[in-house]
């Protein structure tokens, strides 16, 4: 059927297969966004708990005049960008090692990489508490070896903990994305670079990195979005620093019944994350040769 005229003057092509999925994506993204925009200018009758259609700037004014909302948005951006950076630095050696490993080891590597993802997030969080807690594995070891005299408290319930666990949770997404790209790199190009006198690091930065930039970009965007929107890990492991924009939005939609303000905050967060993602994409194309690789699919 593909390629044959269905109606006079209209033929289904292979690209048209994407239309149903694209429609779902558009409806699933555009419609909720439109609803948020509309809700953000509504008013709330807090006596009757009713959203009232209006064209009110109240929620946006509250948003712009409350510094703590912007702190939370900034935290989300920094948290996402930091996770993207640390996972890409840690992920590259793992992905390249997997790409050059024998087939059997690739299978084992995949299992090791994906197993943590199959355990629930709550399970992972409490496992981290057991590892990092005052009476946890690391502190017990440090105390038994007389390296410290009292438990190291900053291991748990600090921004360090949040950063560590977000990196751990998101590392598989980065590794998988870079690994797929690395598998497609023609190894002879790297050998040629080495034959022409490039040191290993030069060969990495001038050949491997540009050729694997599409994978890196996919990993960066995925990890950035996942880490920036994370709510459970910061709140259960970040201690008194664990507040997130997502938790605030949840509070405003729920207990406070302030849907306009929650909508405005959600839209502001989305805009900040989108702009940061664009900036990250721009930075990625600055890698020497990366633009040519990313743009090679263009007609």
């Amino acid at each position: 059927m593909i390629g044959r005229p269905l109606f006079s003057g209209f033929a289904l092509g292979r690209t048209h297969l994407a239309i149903p999925v694209a429609l779902v994506l558009v409806l699933g993204c555009i419609v909720p966004l439109g609803v948020l925009v509309v809700f953000s200018v509504f008013e709330v009758d807090f006596d009757a708990f009713v959203l009232m259609p209006a064209l009110s700037p109240r929620a946006w004014s509250d948003l712009f005049h409350t510094w703590s909302f912007w702190v939370l948005i900034g935290k989300a951006v920094i948290s996402g960008a930091a996770a993207a950076l640390t996972t890409s630095i840690l992920g590259y050696p793992i992905a390249l090692a997997l790409a050059s490993a024998p087939l059997n080891w690739k299978g084992i590597g995949t299992v090791v990489l994906l197993t943590p993802l199959y355990t629930g997030e709550i399970v992972r969080i409490y496992a981290w508490r057991i590892v990092l807690g005052s009476e946890g594995l690391i502190n017990t070891l440090l105390l038994d070896l007389h390296i410290v005299a009292s438990p190291v408290k900053w291991l748990l319930f600090t921004p360090f903990t949040t950063a560590l666990v977000l990196t751990y949770n998101n590392l598989p997404y980065m590794v998988l994305a870079i690994w797929v790209s690395a598998e497609m790199v023609d190894k002879r190009l790297i050998e040629a670079a080495r034959d022409l006198g490039a040191r290993p690091l030069d060969a990495f930065f001038k050949v491997t990195l540009p050729l694997t930039t599409p994978g890196l970009a996919a990993g960066v965007f995925a990890v950035f979005a996942l880490a920036a929107g994370e709510m459970l890990t910061p709140s259960l492991l970040g201690g008194t620093s664990g507040q997130t924009a997502m938790a605030m939005i949840d509070n405003l939609f729920g207990t406070a019944f302030d849907w306009p303000l929650a909508s405005a905050l959600a839209l502001a967060l989305l805009a900040a994350l989108f702009l940061t993602a664009v900036a990250l994409g721009f930075c990625l194309t600055r890698f020497k040769g990366a633009r040519a690789v990313i743009g090679r699919g263009r007609a």
Binding site: Y126, I130, G133, S134, E135, K153, L156, S235, T240, G242
Partner: peptide, 23 residues
């Protein structure tokens, strides 16, 4: 008060775990 707190608890199971683990 923030610097003297170990954490804010989220659910009662969370707090029970915090007591049980000596945090």
């Amino acid at each position: 008060q923030k610097p003297i707190l170990r954490t804010y608890w989220q659910t009662i199971g969370d707090l029970t775990n915090l007591f049980a683990t000596g945090e």
